Amino acid sequence: MTGEEDRAGRTTREDELRGNVAQVRERIRAACAGAGRPEDSVTLVAITKTFPLEDVRTLAALGVTDTGENREQELKQKAPDAPGLTWHFVGQLQSNKARSVVRLAQVVHSVDRLSLVGALSKAAVAEEKTVRCLLQVSLASYGPEGAETGMSRGGVAPGDVPDLAGAVAGADGLELGGVMAVAPLGSDPDEAFAALRAVSSRLRSEHAGAGWISAGMTGDLEAAIRQGATHVRLGRALLGTRPPLG
């Protein structure tokens, strides 16, 4: 798009993203105000799955410097060419992809089994870095039967969190950061995220530094913030309709 076209009133992608960021920031501000929380208590993570590297760079220029990917392949394609960002891996992770993810991401949101803890620890030691890990908690019991789809699949049962947390806390190269969850489709997000908040509270009684709660997406970020989310993961609200996977 040329400068003349811009002056003619056509909206550029940068303009679109700037407007979306402003709207999202206002939603976060209003939700924090309603919950009696400071706005800076919530970190916005842009989920850029299927969107191009140029969008990642534009969001970074607009101040959104926490970026999340669901797939190891896309993380490998984007992260090396967008330095200076905090990269979050938020998708289901196969143990054989652990080193690739650890090489590029600072945070893994989807730790849900002991075998993955071992793979991540081995990779972190090999890469000589420390990776912050969040335990993905299953909230399946708070939604209609069969409601779990996509990213909400997986996750450790709330009762199994202490054992998994102990494994992460004791693993070389890993730091226990907190919990993550997705509210099942058809659930009451306040109820689901209140359950996650309770899990987080119990976790912090044993691991005081594990205070992150990664919860809330485009449709339910307000409920997540009401229930204590420290990180919200937004794709559609920031970037628009998602292109099909290649």
Rank of each mutant, 00 (worst) to 15 (best):
A195G: 04
G209H: 07
F193S: 13
K122H: 05
P80F: 13
G235L: 04
D40V: 10
N96A: 00
R10D: 00
L238A: 09
L44M: 06
T67W: 15
A82D: 05
D55C: 08
V232H: 11
S152N: 12
E148V: 06
L116W: 06
A119Q: 00
L139A: 07
L245A: 14
S200Y: 05
E14H: 04
L44R: 05
M217P: 12
S187Y: 10
T218R: 10
K76N: 15
A126Y: 01
A126S: 14
K49Y: 05
D163Y: 00
V101H: 10
S214W: 08
V125S: 11
D172G: 10
S187G: 11
G178C: 03
D81F: 14
E26F: 07
R153F: 10
G211H: 04
V107Y: 00
C133Q: 00
A82K: 02
A237H: 14
Q73D: 12
R13N: 14
C32E: 02
A79C: 09
P83V: 03
E14A: 09
D112Q: 07
H231W: 13
Q77L: 15
D112K: 13
P162D: 00
L104A: 01
N96E: 05
A157G: 13
V101S: 11
A119S: 03
A31W: 10
V90D: 09
A157N: 12
A105V: 04
G9D: 12
L176N: 09
A210Y: 05
H109M: 07
K76C: 15
E69W: 11
A124Q: 12
R132D: 09
L93R: 08
R13W: 13
P244N: 01
T2D: 11
R10W: 02
V156G: 08
T241E: 14
V232Y: 07
P162L: 00
V101W: 11
Q227R: 13
R29A: 15
G209R: 06
L62H: 09
A46F: 13
V90M: 14
S138T: 04
A60N: 10
A198I: 06
V156L: 10
G155M: 10
A46P: 10
E4R: 09
E39Y: 01
L93D: 08
L135Q: 03
G240T: 00
Q73F: 03
E39F: 01
G146F: 00
V182W: 01
Q23W: 06
R236S: 14
A33L: 13
D188C: 07
G84R: 02
D112Y: 06
A46M: 10
R153Q: 15
V168T: 03
G91F: 11
T50W: 13
F89T: 08
A192S: 01
P38T: 02
L174I: 09
V156A: 13
H109Q: 15
V131E: 08
E69V: 12
A210N: 11
A119C: 02
V64M: 12
L114D: 14
A208P: 07
A31D: 08
A61E: 15
A224G: 11
A167M: 09
S201G: 15
G177Y: 03
T218M: 08
G9K: 04
V56G: 03
S115L: 09
V179F: 03
E14D: 01
R25Q: 15
A124S: 15
A98I: 02
E72L: 02
S138Y: 05
A165C: 00
E145D: 12
